[in-house]
């Protein structure tokens, strides 16, 4: 049952990304391009997504998930090197390509060869991150 729910969640997520225009890299880069022909669509997508999710967080209070023992415990509100450096790297890649992980997968089926190369590079980046994080820890890199 949890597997079926996961598939449904992925399906709604993908459909939402497609119809909102977020699988079109020009719309994403248009949002980031404040000095060019600025496109505010992404703010509407974010707003539209945050509202139902804010309601969902409210509903978690004093309850349990339908098919799980407990809700995830929020991480410590720690702001550090990993969050800042990681988000900066992510933003650079997002700006360069107009793709983030969700839309990259959602557009694989119709986006052509470039999408496959992007996802391959992204998966490689994800695979090496534990080692990179260990190197940064070892060298004591902070921001």
């Amino acid at each position: 049952m949890r597997i079926l729910v996961s598939f449904t969640v992925g399906s709604l997520f993908g459909l939402g990304l497609l119809i909102s225009g977020m699988t079109d890299t020009t719309k994403v880069q248009g949002w980031l391009d404040v000095f060019g022909n600025w496109d505010p669509t992404l703010a509407f997508v974010m707003g539209g997504a945050i509202v139902p999710m804010a309601v969902a967080w409210r509903l978690t209070v004093g309850r349990k998930p339908v098919l799980a023992a407990s809700f995830p415990t929020p991480p410590e509100p720690k702001l550090g090197r990993n969050l800042v450096l990681g988000s900066t790297f992510f933003g650079m890649g997002w700006g360069l390509s107009g793709l983030c992980p969700g839309p990259a997968i959602a557009s694989l089926g119709f986006g052509g060869a470039g999408g496959f190369v992007f996802v391959a590079a992204m998966l490689a980046g994800m695979a090496i991150t534990p080692f990179l994080r260990a190197r940064l820890d070892h060298r004591g890199v902070t921001v």
């Binding site: 990681g86 988000s87 890649g93 997002w94 360069l96 992007f118």
Partner: peptide
């Protein structure tokens, strides 16, 4: 871009 998105999102969790 793919490498930056992969490393960045996992580092930032």
């Amino acid at each position: 871009a793919g490498l930056l998105v992969g490393v960045g999102t996992r580092l930032a969790n």
